[in-house]
Design a protein around this nucleic acid. Sequence first.
DNA 1: GATTTTATGTCAGTCTTGTTGACTTTCCAA
DNA 2: TTGGAAAGTCAACAAGACTGACATAAAATC
Lengths: 170, 170
Amino acid sequence: MSDTGAGSGGSGESLLFLTDEQLRKGIEAMFFAYRGFTADPDRILQKHGYGRAHHRAVHFIHRTPGTTVNNLLSVLGVTKQSLNRVLRTLIEDGLVESRVGQRDKRERHLYLTLAGEALEQALSDAQRARMRAAYRTAGPQAVSGFRQVLEAMMDPEMRRHFAATRDGDQ
Amino acid sequence: MSDTGAGSGGSGESLLFLTDEQLRKGIEAMFFAYRGFTADPDRILQKHGYGRAHHRAVHFIHRTPGTTVNNLLSVLGVTKQSLNRVLRTLIEDGLVESRVGQRDKRERHLYLTLAGEALEQALSDAQRARMRAAYRTAGPQAVSGFRQVLEAMMDPEMRRHFAATRDGDQ
DNA sequence: GATTTTATGTCAGTCTTGTTGACTTTCCAA
DNA sequence: TTGGAAAGTCAACAAGACTGACATAAAATC
């Protein structure tokens, strides 16, 4: 999946003249778009007294129910102290359940409670709505390119985490 | 899960069948890619004792020399107090020069010094290198789509800021 | 069985960067 | 000329990242 998506073979395709100006526009596009990308969930989170860190935790626990703390750490790329602060509040608030592992009792497996799923739903609905609108505006061709460039921009380890889940559209 | 995004009928272009799963992948792609996007500058900044906020200020002052603090505020989307702390250190360290406005003496016009330009160069070189590599990997078709989706994802006000500068590739 | 490693959690302290509130200087308009 | 608005600064606080040290329990290894 990480091999060049250029695919269609022609060597003429590699004649990509990228001026610094074009690259700068790409950089600013990432900056401005990421703000839009987080704006809707941020508003919802604020009402609950949570931050982006909580969103990320909830998102990835939803994506991979039963994931361990260590797993989550490597996906999120933060320290355990940092994650722990977030998880503690989520557990106290009854959004996340932490179950001792059966095979390995040192591990804690994380699950969203019904309340946790409800918050995840609200957050991801908002984010998906924006993503869907952007996709619709840009069209299917653009969606494919969008994903290809983003994947190529990741660090290899992140790309592994990214590719680790089912997909469906490529 | 929630509503599966099906084409709303109508025009041929809207035959975009977007499952929640596909949208979730797009969301995660943004998350992971943004980390890669900021990783290289972050390493450079750390050596200088700066953070991302400094990078953003330096970037936009470079882009629009002579911009006022207020201008910068609306682009960056933070409070003036927050920006001020960053600007103060940059001015103290001799990377940014603040000149009192001629027409309106309340305004401060911001410029990068030679040292400031040097840091900007180092930061944007690193970021452009990654962007260029991603573009090359993904191909020209993908680059166009990437930009289209990102622009569609921005809030309208950010889109204005984004579109406000010269472009070159579209 | 003893030791080491691993997984997790906690406490304390620092740093960046966001926030609000209060203030000064400057401009402009009634 | 006076009062309000705008631009910018200073101070204090909060979220959330970090490091470092330490505790506990379980698994793995010797």
